[in-house]
Design a protein around this nucleic acid. Structure first.
Length: 423
RNA sequence: GGAGAGAUGGCUGAGUGGCUGAAAGCGCGCCCCUGCUAAGGGCGUAUAGGCUAAAACCUAUCGAGGGUUCGAAUCCCUCUCUCUCCGCCA
């Protein structure tokens, strides 16, 4: 959520930043323009209401004093009865105006950071660098490799749950588990994160805190009859661990890693990546989350990125680093850097981690604040990134480790956990 | 699922209709005293919004929502959550 005060005071600056996401964000029917109108109305009504309340409070106190002194106060009481009625009516109106304004504010995305490259779609993303050397040949797709080995079973998954689910068997199931273990160990032992284990279900307030609601309800699985959703990413519960808290500045940065399953309806992506386990309704992910001071957020995003890269490096997977442009970053982010892993069957790089700074956008929405040196609470900045998406990592390992003899060679780092040189 | 108890500021915890945004304590900040340490004293210290150059000031907030009243932390209703006991259960 953008800052209300800044919305008024730095209106033009913010509008210019927002426009970099695409001109539609400033249309007449956009939340941006609507919020401007609703703010004026909301403030006018509130001022009127507050003046009336001030009068009521003052006279009510007087009535109390008169009664205590044994004096007659019936005239004041009669007058206040009218005022009370007007207060009630105005209060309803002002409250509705305030709620309308708040709703509009919640639909305005985070203005991109200055450092985010210009551009309206992914074609304008900036490749920063490539690491590792992609194998020169084209391999079979992972689903063929996996089905041949008997470790991937999409037929059973479809019967159990539908399309876009997977069943792992034997060594495949073990690899999924080994990856989870490997990634978490690395972030805890080498990168100093505190591991957390959190619910995979969250309520609407929590999902609003990190920005999935109200705008992206269609992407979420909702539990029938309850205010509860399956989480689309561990970012949601982990960030909200501190919802509505005022942290001490000395606690920052707070850095957590955690594994959760993730659930996405993939409502808008029918027909894309329909085969295999690239795009699933349920997938596993290890997530990295930081809560930090706003002025340090961007520098620390680079550290977080390195922690995610370290996993790819340890797994000997070729990848590239891509700086997303203003039109391609997510709703809540102001800066995003993706890691894309080489998939030799598709001869291209595919996203395997997305590392973002949200500046104070989520901190403000979720009520996560810290007490700054001046003693005033300020929203914390939040960062998060995948470290990594486990299913896609498994895919990359299958394809990059595949050999002509049908076996899949495992990177040295995984061999102890898998108790074998090959899958 | 049934019965009971509870929810107050960063924390503990008073407070059953009128200067209570809230006693007291802890914590924290500044100052004083004490030639170390310990102890002691004074003052300050919630959040959000509005209006301000900044204050002053005004408004709201005692789990959430609604009601009674001139006036609600305090009375009534609904809901949520926590705890205890019972039931069920990995």
């Amino acid at each position: 959520m953008i800052d209300r005060r800044e919305f008024r005071i730095a209106h033009e600056t913010m509008a210019a930043a927002l426009a970099r996401r695409g001109p539609a964000w400033l249309n007449n029917d956009s939340p941006w323009v609507q919020a401007g109108l609703l703010d004026q109305r909301q403030r006018a009504l509130k001022s009127e209401l507050e003046a009336l309340q001030a009068e009521r409070n003052q006279v009510s106190r007087l009535i109390g004093q008169k009664k205590a002194a044994g004096e007659d106060a019936t005239a004041e009481m009669a007058r206040m009865k009218e005022v009370a009625a007007r207060v009630r009516a105005l209060d309803t109106e002002a409250r509705e105006a305030e709620e309308a304004f708040s709703r509009a504010l919640l639909e305005i995305p985070n203005p991109p950071d200055e450092s985010t490259p210009d551009g309206v779609d992914e074609s304008a993303n900036v490749e920063r660098c490539r690491r590792g050397i992609p194998r020169p040949d084209v391999t079979p797709p992972h689903w063929e490799i996996g089905e041949q080995m008997g470790i991937l079973d999409f037929e059973s998954a479809a019967r159990l749950a539908g399309s876009r689910f997977s069943v792992l068997r034997g060594r495949g199931a073990r690899l999924e588990r080994a990856l989870m273990q490997f990634m978490l160990n690395m972030h805890v032992d080498q990168h100093g994160y505190e591991e957390v284990w959190v619910p995979a279900i969250a309520n609407s307030k929590t999902l609003t805190g990190t920005g999935q609601l109200p705008k992206f309800a269609d992407d979420l699985y909702r539990l029938e009859g309850e205010d509860a959703y399956l989480i689309p990413t561990a970012e949601v519960p982990i960030t909200n661990l501190y919802q509505d808290q005022i942290l001490d500045a000395s606690q920052l940065p707070i850095r957590h890693c955690g594994y959760t399953p993730c659930f996405r309806r993939e409502a808008g992506s029918a027909g894309r990546d329909t085969r295999g386990m690239i795009r699933q309704h349920q997938f596993d992910k290890v997530e990295l989350v930081w809560l930090t001071r706003p002025e340090q957020a961007l520098a620390q995003l680079e550290q977080l990125l390195q922690h995610a890269e370290a996993v790819l490096q340890a797994l000997e997977l070729p990848y590239r680093v891509v700086d997303l442009c203003a039109g391609d970053i997510g709703f809540s982010a102001c800066r995003t850097i993706d890691l894309e892993v080489w998939l030799p069957s598709q001869q291209c790089y595919r996203e395997i981690s997305s590392c973002s700074s949200f500046a104070q956008f989520q901190g403000r929405r979720a009520g996560i604040r810290y007490r700054a040196e001046d003693g005033k609470p300020r929203p914390v900045a939040t960062l998060n990134g995948s470290g990594l998406a486990i299913g896609r990592t498994l895919v990359a390992l299958l394809e990059n480790g595949w050999q002509e003899d049908g076996r899949v060679r495992l990177p040295a780092a995984l061999q102890p956990l898998m108790n074998s040189e090959f899958l």
